[in-house]
Design a protein around this nucleic acid. Structure first.
Length: 641
RNA sequence: GCCGACGUAGCUCAGGGGUAGAGCACUUCCUUGGUAAGGAAGAGGUCAUGGGUUCAAAUCCCAUUGUUGGCUCCA
């Protein structure tokens, strides 16, 4: 007998060699029907795999992320089976599960697949799924594995096997399809009821440009057809929120082929929005002890030679700006820190002066690879809400906490709740990649971890993801389509103080090196606005709305009253416009709703006579009549939440 | 940067070797209307750019450019 510990802490006794599926059956028949796999001592296993010793077992269903991952990985095998049936001779690379769905990299030889073929493949998958073929695990020797795929002529699998140690290789077979696979898999294909192929893309074998390009087929499957329908609906909704679409519709920003790719043009409404964000943060920063600075858009080559960026990025940047002076070169600034270091150096600093906090909404230019550009989230010219904190090593933690407070304040004010903080640490096995002393790294890394913990952040720790110059804490959010973006960032830097020979005089009257912290709560105005647009689907909070109200006169007879009203609101710093068009009120309302203007103020005979307004709120409808004063109060209340 | 798809009116898109199409937006006129589209007329396009094939190219081919889905990269 062996003891099986379940997640609720209960312990049950079973015969040696029991499977997770049998355990599930012993609990309830309903559970057994839903078990996809099981986590045995922290490792995901097939539900049919015998357990030989005392273990902790967690049964995985569709409700577990790991259950879903197993399900989608098995779906990739099912798709491969369908592809092999439809296109004999297809060779297979790898087919992992994704956060949602899966892909398989395949080589069709001369055949090119198009999305027109998707339906046929989906149908074949469902046809094969209905056979309820079990996924059968079989350990094989390396020699046998090589023999099998040599005979099959699949060089990709052979390439994979080459790197695997003998004795750890397993095959999985379902129906007529056998694949090299570590597993685990769901019990049988019958769990897959709905399949949809999403897109095609080229992907190099093992991500290596010099190797052959395979066709990557993305797909998603579900245990119920209704879930697929729902998923597709969610995708449609997400597309409606895409900041590129809304940015155009709401006239926030634009791109021009003539100006150049990745160089956004901020239209008047987008600029209004962005400036409100800027003012908001600037105010918070002044309160937090920051000093605002301004530095030029270009810098002398020597500045970047000193900072080290010239050597590292010079060749891949925008190329130097020449001057009539022979040999003189300037660069568009790719970052603000070198300039700020020079500001720090404008006078001697005492330990009593630290921390020095220099903030700048600094526009920087980076030559991002053309294929990487994406709406406002990835551009070549953007403005960082940058600041550099120069502090003593013993101040790092406190400064970090303050920056986290600022970031949380910003996120809170804008309604971002779904984000995670990623702590990026040094790879302890490869310290030569990094600069700075062990002592300082230890100090900074514990400072970040402690600060994040004390602030109660939901964090993931990534070892080896630190920058070469210091550890960092990044705030990540997801966009409407589930793509992850880094917004705010806080980075410790030992490199630049060294390179710029920054100093302060300590209480011991000796020269010391300050630590630098880079931080940007928004990250960049461009990316932040993009994510904000998607986050609120273009329905900005009132205080950010480019147009807070629109006055809709019932007919032209009330235009004078509308103008008077507009002036009065503008005097109270509430901004908006008047719809003077010769249209009926229904039409004006509809257009204002489509433009997502928060308040519609309807004025006609009644309102003009009584000196009141009829207020309609975007997305909510008629709020009834109120005095101008009442409306102003309501607006002010809403803005100062 | 690499691979694929796409680029037709301000916007969303249809069409497709032989006078360039729709809806919305725009202009003018009628209408002065009370909570999500009033009516009529009009204007608007080197069909991304440059080459090639053809009697004839927006349409087929090539290159360039931009957008886009991925890959790779990211101070």
């Amino acid at each position: 007998m062996i003891s099986i510990t379940l997640p609720d802490g209960s312990v049950r006794e079973y015969d040696k060699g029991i499977t997770s599926m049998q355990i599930a059956q012993s609990i309830s028949e309903g559970l057994a029907r839903n078990v996809l796999a099981a986590e045995v001592n922290g490792e995901v296993w097939d539900a049919s795999r015998p357990i030989e010793a005392d273990s902790a077992v967690k049964l995985l269903t569709w409700n577990d992320a790991k259950g879903k991952a197993t399900y989608w990985h098995s779906s990739a095998h099912l798709m491969a089976e369908a592809l092999e049936a439809l296109y004999p001779g297809t060779k297979f690379g790898i087919g992992p599960a994704l956060e949602t769905g899966f892909y398989y990299d395949v080589d069709f030889g001369d055949k090119t697949l198009s999305s027109d073929d998707f339906k046929q493949i989906e149908d074949k998958m469902i046809e094969l799924a209905k056979t309820k073929s079990e996924y059968i695990r079989k350990p094989v020797s390396k020699a046998d594995a090589i023999e099998y795929f040599t005979e099959k002529g699949d060089e990709y699998k052979l390439d994979l096997i080459k790197d695997l140690p003998d004795g750890s290789i397993t095959f999985y077979t379902q129906g007529g399809f056998t694949d090299l696979c570590r597993g685990p898999h769901i019990p049988n294909t019958g769990f897959i009821k709905a399949a949809k192929l999403m897109s095609l893309a080229g992907a190099y074998w093992r991500g290596d440009e010099s190797r052959k390009q395979l066709t990557r087929i993305y797909g998603v499957t579900f245990p119920k057809a209704s879930e697929l329908t729902e998923y597709l609906h969610v995708i449609e909704e997400a597309k409606k929120r895409d900041h590129r679409k809304l940015g155009k519709e709401l006239e926030l920003f634009a791109f021009s082929e003539k100006v150049g790719m990745g160089l956004p043009l901020w239209l008047p409404k987008g600029t209004a929005l962005r400036e409100r964000l800027t003012n908001f943060l600037q105010k918070a920063q002044v309160k937090a002890g920051y000093e605002q600075v301004i530095t030029p858009h270009i810098g002398h080559k020597n500045l970047y030679v000193t900072s080290g960026h010239y050597e590292k990025y010079g060749a891949d940047s925008f190329q130097p700006i020449k001057t009539p002076q022979e040999g003189e070169e300037f660069f568009l600034k790719p970052m603000n820190c070198p300039h700020h270091c020079e500001i720090y150096k404008t006078k001697p600093r005492s330990y009593k002066d630290l921390p020095v906090r220099l903030a700048e909404f600094g526009t920087v230019y980076r030559y991002e690879q053309s294929g990487e550009l994406h709406g406002l989230t990835r551009v070549r010219g953007f403005t960082q809400d940058d600041a550099h904190l120069f502090c003593r090593p013993d101040q790092v933690k406190e400064e970090f906490m303050k920056v986290i407070d600022l970031v949380l304040y910003v996120f809170g004010a804008l309604g971002f709740e779904d984000y995670i903080a990623q702590v990026s640490l040094r790879d302890p096995n490869n310290k030569t990649k990094y600069i700075g002393t062990d002592e300082n790294w230890a100090l900074a890394e514990t400072a970040i971890i402690e600060a994040a913990a004390e602030k109660g952040l939901r964090t993931v720790v990534e070892t080896g993801e630190a920058a070469f110059y210091g550890p960092k804490l990044d705030f990540m959010v997801k966009d409407a389509l589930g793509r992850k973006w880094q917004l705010g960032t806080i980075q410790v830097d030992y490199n630049l103080p060294e390179r710029f020979e920054l100093e302060y005089t300590g209480s011991d009257n000796q020269k010391h090196r300050p630590v630098m912290i880079h931080r940007a709560p928004f990250g960049s105005m461009e990316r932040f606005v993009a994510v904000l647009i998607e986050h609120c689907a273009g329905n900005f909070p009132l205080w950010l709305s480019p147009e807070q109200f629109i006055i809709l006169p019932i007919s032209e007879k009330y235009e004078d009253y509308a103008k008077k009203l507009s002036d009065e609101l503008k005097d109270s710093d509430i901004c908006g416009l008047i719809d003077f068009r010769d249209e009926k009120i229904g039409r004006k309302i509809r257009d204002a709703e489509v433009k997502k203007i928060p308040y519609m103020l309807i004025v006609g005979e009644k309102e003009a006579a009584e000196g009141r307004i009829s207020v309609r709120k975007h997305g909510q409808g008629d709020l009834g009549s109120m005095s101008i004063e009442e409306f102003k109060q309501q607006i002010i209340k809403e803005i100062t939440v």
